[in-house]
Computed example of a mutant assay.
Amino acid sequence: MHANVGSIDRIVRIIAGVALVVLAFVPALPLAASPVLQWGAVLVGLVLVMTALVRFCPLYALFRLSTRKVSH
């Protein structure tokens, strides 16, 4: 498993992931109105955070993509 998530990508994933998890529990938003949307947002948010922490995205690997800078 080779790292394929770069630094800026990691920051964006962490911010977006944490935001999704937090916003899923704000009662005034439509995400909290439906349990399916709420837990879907939590799941996507947690996946974003986890892929940022381990610096590996399986979807990137599937399509042979990488946002990591290659050092020579």
Score class of each variant (00 low, 15 high):
1 M>L: 09
47 V>M: 13
41 A>N: 07
54 V>D: 11
68 R>K: 14
13 R>L: 01
46 L>K: 02
3 A>P: 04
56 F>V: 03
53 L>W: 05
14 I>T: 10
11 I>N: 05
50 M>F: 15
4 N>T: 01
66 S>V: 02
42 V>T: 09
34 S>D: 09
21 V>W: 08
50 M>R: 13
62 L>C: 04
32 A>Y: 04
9 D>Q: 14
10 R>C: 09
68 R>V: 06
23 L>A: 12
16 A>K: 04
16 A>S: 14
63 F>H: 11
70 V>E: 15
36 V>A: 13
43 L>V: 06
10 R>P: 05
26 V>E: 14
19 A>R: 06
36 V>G: 03
65 L>P: 09
57 C>K: 01
31 L>M: 06
2 H>Y: 14
24 A>N: 04
40 G>I: 00
26 V>Q: 14
2 H>N: 15
17 G>Y: 04
17 G>T: 02
52 A>K: 01
72 H>E: 14
18 V>C: 10
13 R>I: 00
16 A>I: 02
15 I>M: 12
66 S>T: 15
8 I>Q: 12
26 V>S: 11
16 A>N: 07
49 V>M: 12
38 Q>V: 00
59 L>N: 05
63 F>V: 00
25 F>I: 00
32 A>R: 01
61 A>H: 14
28 A>W: 09
16 A>G: 12
31 L>I: 04
19 A>D: 07
3 A>R: 07
19 A>M: 10
38 Q>N: 09
67 T>A: 12
70 V>G: 15
47 V>P: 03
19 A>L: 10
25 F>A: 06
29 L>I: 01
59 L>Y: 10
45 G>F: 06
54 V>K: 13
33 A>K: 12
25 F>K: 01
54 V>Q: 12
28 A>R: 11
27 P>M: 08
14 I>E: 07
4 N>Q: 08
50 M>E: 15
57 C>I: 01
14 I>F: 08
7 S>D: 14
54 V>C: 14
25 F>Y: 10
13 R>M: 03
20 L>Q: 02
54 V>E: 12
60 Y>M: 01
20 L>S: 03
49 V>S: 11
35 P>L: 07
51 T>N: 07
7 S>P: 11
27 P>K: 08
69 K>F: 08
25 F>H: 12
1 M>Q: 08
62 L>E: 11
28 A>D: 15
69 K>H: 14
29 L>N: 02
32 A>H: 09
7 S>T: 13
37 L>F: 03
25 F>M: 01
12 V>F: 15
9 D>N: 15
54 V>Y: 03
62 L>D: 08
60 Y>N: 10
7 S>G: 15
59 L>T: 11
61 A>D: 14
60 Y>P: 02
39 W>C: 00
26 V>P: 02
63 F>K: 02
50 M>Q: 13
71 S>N: 11
37 L>N: 01
1 M>E: 12
33 A>S: 14
3 A>K: 12
40 G>S: 12
36 V>M: 07
45 G>A: 08
8 I>K: 13
61 A>L: 04
15 I>E: 11
18 V>S: 07
1 M>C: 08
48 L>K: 01
53 L>M: 09
3 A>W: 11
31 L>R: 02
53 L>H: 06
42 V>P: 03
28 A>S: 14
15 I>A: 15
48 L>E: 10
1 M>R: 07
59 L>W: 09
43 L>H: 02
8 I>M: 13
